[in-house]
């Protein structure tokens, strides 16, 4: 589904990604872990098409197409979803109206008919239950006055409404208490399917107790320095990132890849 090859990217002249290789297949859940400033969020943003980051080398194939050549909105309607670490507030813009525009953009792209307000509401009410979203929240402007947990739940709710093929969730677990974390994890697990791939970008092991990944990658200084199964996350939790750094220094595991898509 997704193949990242030797991806380099920089912001304001500073190189953040320094040769990322990653292959994600349908049905897989990949966790990307790493210390602060390692390039985790940059990778997520670059994949979504944020133009503050300049891609200097490498390529990304999504379903065999050149992802980096696509506008952000095209990536979105083609099925790439980014769950934001800090979802932005848009005062005055009704959440439901916004989400209907988004859902209909995807549907139009697929050659499906747009949903009218009634059908859209019916769908929204069904999906809301999974993430325990109150309808009152959706009657408010986009993310306006939402608590941290509400914003993250709203992101997961949007994901389930948009039904992307590839969901990149950027620190969706940060700032959540344990109950909210369980709700969010439940939403993600319901979303898992053999046709879909998920990339979980996270700092902590915590989320991975509830959403068990197929692969875990460690990113450091803009490179994937170690990859493994779900146990790798636990090792990191116990021993921190320092031992990976030492190993990476010896050259093992550099650029290691998951199975081909």
């Amino acid at each position: 589904m997704l193949e990242v090859r030797n991806l380099h990217a920089r912001v304001e002249g500073k190189e953040i990604l320094r040769g990322i290789d990653l292959a994600v297949g349908a049905g897989e859940v990949h966790a990307i872990m790493g210390p602060n400033g390692s390039g985790k969020s940059t990778l997520a943003q670059v994949l979504a098409g944020r133009d503050t980051y300049e891609v200097t080398a490498g390529e990304v194939l999504y379903k065999g197409q050149d992802l980096l050549g696509m506008a952000p909105e095209l990536r979105a309607v083609e099925g790439v979803f980014l769950g934001f670490q800090y979802p932005v507030e848009i005062p005055g813009l009704n959440s439901l109206y916004f989400l209907r525009a988004a859902v209909n953009a995807v549907r139009t792209h697929r050659g499906e008919e747009e949903l009218d307000a009634v059908d859209f509401m019916a769908l929204a009410q069904e999906k809301m239950k999974a993430v325990e979203m109150g309808e009152d929240l959706l009657r408010r402007p986009v993310n306006a006055g939402f608590s941290g947990g509400e914003k993250k739940r709203a992101e997961i709710f949007q994901m389930t409404m948009l039904e992307p093929a590839l969901a990149i969730l950027d620190e969706t677990d940060s700032g959540l208490d344990i109950d909210a974390l369980k709700v969010v994890a439940h939403g993600i697990n319901l979303f898992r399917s053999p046709e879909r791939a998920i990339i979980l970008v996270t700092h902590y092991q915590r989320l991975l107790d509830y959403v068990v990944p197929d692969f875990v990658h460690v990113i450091q200084n803009g490179r994937l320095v170690k990859s493994g199964g779900k146990d790798l996350a636990r090792q990191l939790e116990d021993s921190g990132y320092a031992w990976v750094e030492e190993e990476a220094g010896e050259g093992s595991g550099l650029g290691e890849r998951g199975p081909a898509a």
């Binding site: 952000p72 909105e73 979105a76 813009l93 525009a101």
Partner: peptide, 18 residues
């Protein structure tokens, strides 16, 4: 907005109208 599939000009319109 664009990450949710909404074109830039529509996004500006929605934000301003909000």
């Amino acid at each position: 907005c664009r990450q949710r599939g909404i074109k830039e000009e529509d996004a500006v319109g929605m934000i301003v109208n909000g």
